[in-house]
Design a protein around this nucleic acid. Structure first.
Lengths: 210, 210
DNA sequence: AAAAAAATTAGGGTTAGTACTAACAAAAAA
DNA sequence: TTTTTTGTTAGTACTAACCCTAATTTTTTT
């Protein structure tokens, strides 16, 4: 699916102007004049980026940003658009993760470059997120015991050490180990370690490293 | 060594005011009234953070930031201080990695919190950098052949596969492998993989993963 | 030229891990 | 209640890796 550039601005003329510029380079646009309107219909699965006005009746741009940030599933890059120079506000939204903060009037080229950057970031985020999700799905399919054995393997412990710690026989550990390798879809320990390490798999579940 | 809060501002009264606030919480301060003055005497090994005025005679704050960013060794977190609200400038320096951008007049507490955050970031950066440096030092001690074998191990290849690829005997690979483990200071393959992966060791040297 | 480091190979013994099959009990799900 | 999953253990054969010593050649450094 093509990425969508969402435009949220209460100024109808501005929305149309932005749409025209964005569509002129072949990008898809969806426009909204109210923040909650966007929030209610937004599908996090759709990739793209968000052009967001700061000052709007009802929910403001920064408020919408805060709500989106609160949703763990959302990683939509945001470009703010502002008519008035409010430095503290600009700094705050940038610290909150905005990709850019443009003040009117701005050059079309500047806007388009910022959008391209936002779309690149979104693409990267989603690729990484998908990798993580796949790894997490595999991990979730492991039984509790298999998880314990996985932790031992990644920690570099030998099977006999794991068996002693879990108070089970070496043979049982070997069986779980084989099962872990199969379920995680890897053929070597280094692959397994990489999968766990680079995909934040069970970061909360793998405590002691000693 | 204690961290040092560097203050670079051409306004002598401002420098004194800032020093007083910072010293009141027990932090060390070094002040400069010219950017190049700081740049000439700054020791990247010293940890701390930088309070930097935007507008100054000679080199401006953002110019100094650019020069520091250009030095790979520098990771000093920067807090900008500005008397005039220039949104595009604030956004630019924030995108360039500044920790904060404060506009006068600002609350003492806000300043101190920002400084604390900057110092925390600096501490984290330096710890990570030191880890990386240690890993890189170990890696640098490996002979070319040992590096090739290391790549094979981390890629999950068996010794016989490595020996075939490098057209050397299995025994030779075993010898190099033992040497690699010893020089890298690890006792298991998972530890080795973690060391290489989380410390960017030879990211430019480990190409094919296939 | 002499010394040191790196790369190569080998043998022998030990330990660790894999592959495959098989079995049984307990717990969870259908 | 029957089926499935999970956890447990065992045997056997095979493969891979580790530890140790030792030797030769090549390259690099002094």
């Amino acid at each position: 699916m093509d990425p969508i550039v969402y435009v949220v601005d209460d100024d109808q003329a501005m929305v149309e102007s932005l749409s025209w510029i964005i569509e002129s380079v072949g990008l898809k646009v969806k426009t909204y004049t109210r923040a909650h309107e966007f929030l209610d219909t937004y599908d996090p699965a759709q990739h793209g980026c968000l052009l967001l006005d700061v000052r709007m009746p009802g929910m403001s741009g920064p408020e919408l940003q805060a709500k989106l940030n609160a949703q763990a599933s959302t990683i939509l890059p945001i470009i703010f658009i502002s008519g008035h120079g409010d430095v503290p506000l600009a700094v705050r939204v940038m610290k909150a993760g905005a990709v850019d903060f443009l003040t009117k009037p701005f050059n079309d080229q500047v806007l388009l470059e910022s959008i391209n950057k936002a779309l690149r970031i979104d693409k990267q985020n989603r690729e990484k997120q998908q990798e993580n999700a796949q790894a997490e799905a595999k991990f979730a399919a492991l039984s509790p015991r298999e998880v314990q054995v996985l932790q031992g393997i990644v920690a570099g412990k030998q099977n006999k050490v794991i068996s002693a710690e879990l108070k089970i026989s070496l043979k049982t550990v070997e069986a779980h180990r084989a099962s872990v390798m199969k379920k995680m879809g890897v053929k070597s320990v280094p692959e397994l370690v990489k999968l766990v390490l680079t995909n934040g798999v069970a970061a909360h579940e793998l405590p002691s490293e000693e």
